[in-house]
């Protein structure tokens, strides 16, 4: 199966490991993720006022690019991109007047016909079936205990979420299918502080402390998530957390696609662990999920 894929701004930088591992593990499942040509940044957060169309232009422009390929689906990895693209898609589907205005404004593009569906990669995996994913596993993640973390935009608001907004199970189902153990973390839906990481890093550190400490205290070895902004706030901001809370113990953050790539036993360079703030490699070696003799990318 070939499907257009929308990376979004941060998968080319801090989310590099997310993208690499996703493309490689999708290939194992016979899914070819083809980067959407000429994609534009979705704007990251959806505009929440009724009278603002300007900020819906970028998401709709991307959907037009999909339409121009004569495709009907667009897959995202980043939860934020997913939510923003889907919200704008829903807006124009439900409001022909607004769609007309936007089509007229973007007169250089073809008119958007609302025939594109926005999907999160996790939804695609659910469609394929976790049993089928299980069949491809070469190295089950035995002995690894994980704390799934959804954050906000993957599940809320519920019209734009991929799972139940209060009791989602999709990440649990995937991680279990990959052979890992899962803990219950009541903070799995709590916000990581999102864009406040720019102007209120202390607030982000407070929120991160709760999420990560609960996971650590409940026996989790790492957190698993699907958003590069959550990843930055919960991984890179551990430096600030440590500064604010001296008792804090670091814990690695992993993208769900990195877990898949690990379980599918793909090359280490497909995993993208080299840009993590808290290095997950020692943990994975301890659990014998990475072999010691392999040279690390950062040591090259």
């Amino acid at each position: 199966m070939k499907i257009p894929y929308f990376p979004g701004c941060s998968l080319k930088t801090i989310g590099e490991g997310f993208e690499k591992s996703a493309i490689a593990s999708a290939a194992v499942l016979d899914i070819e993720l083809n980067e959407l040509p000429r994609w534009v940044c979705c704007g990251t957060v959806s505009s929440l006022t009724t009278d603002d169309l300007m900020h819906h232009l970028a998401p709709v422009r991307n959907l037009i690019r999909v339409q121009d390929l004569e495709e009907t689906q667009l897959v995202t990895l980043c939860s934020v991109c997913y939510s923003t693209l889907k919200r704008s898609n829903t807006l124009v589907k439900n409001d022909p007047e607004k769609l007309k205005t936007m089509n007229q404004f973007m007169y250089r593009e073809s008119d958007y016909q609302c025939n594109v569906k926005v999907l999160h990669f996790l939804e695609l995996l659910r469609e394929i079936g976790f049993d089928k994913i299980k069949e491809k596993i070469k190295k089950p993640l035995r002995g690894l205990t994980l704390s799934p973390y959804y954050g906000c935009l993957l599940v809320r608001p519920k019209e734009f979420g991929i799972d139940d907004p209060e009791t989602p199970t999709i990440l649990q189902a995937l991680t279990k299918a990959l052979g890992a153990d899962v803990i219950d973390n009541p903070y799995q839906l709590k916000c990581c502080g999102s864009y406040h990481t720019v102007d209120k890093p202390n607030l982000v550190a407070d929120l991160g402390y709760k999420i990560l400490t609960y996971a650590r205290n409940s026996g989790a070895d790492a957190l698993v998530l699907s958003c590069p902004l959550c990843a930055f706030n919960l991984d890179n901001r551990q430096r600030e957390i440590k500064r604010q809370y001296p008792d804090f113990v670091e814990i690695p953050i992993l993208y769900f696609t990195q877990l898949m790539a690990l379980a599918f036993d793909l090359d280490e360079e497909r995993l993208g662990f080299d840009i993590h703030y808290v290095d997950p490699v020692p943990l994975l070696k301890e659990k014998q999920l990475l072999i010691d003799s392999l040279p690390l990318i950062k040591e090259k």
């Binding site: 701004c9 989310g15 934020v80 902004l229």
Partner: peptide, 18 residues
């Protein structure tokens, strides 16, 4: 330092809101 450390996704979303 902040510009070097903070990823695009955070800066873009923060500016969109604030």
């Amino acid at each position: 330092e902040e510009r070097q450390e903070i990823p695009q996704i955070a800066i873009i979303s923060n500016l969109r809101k604030f």
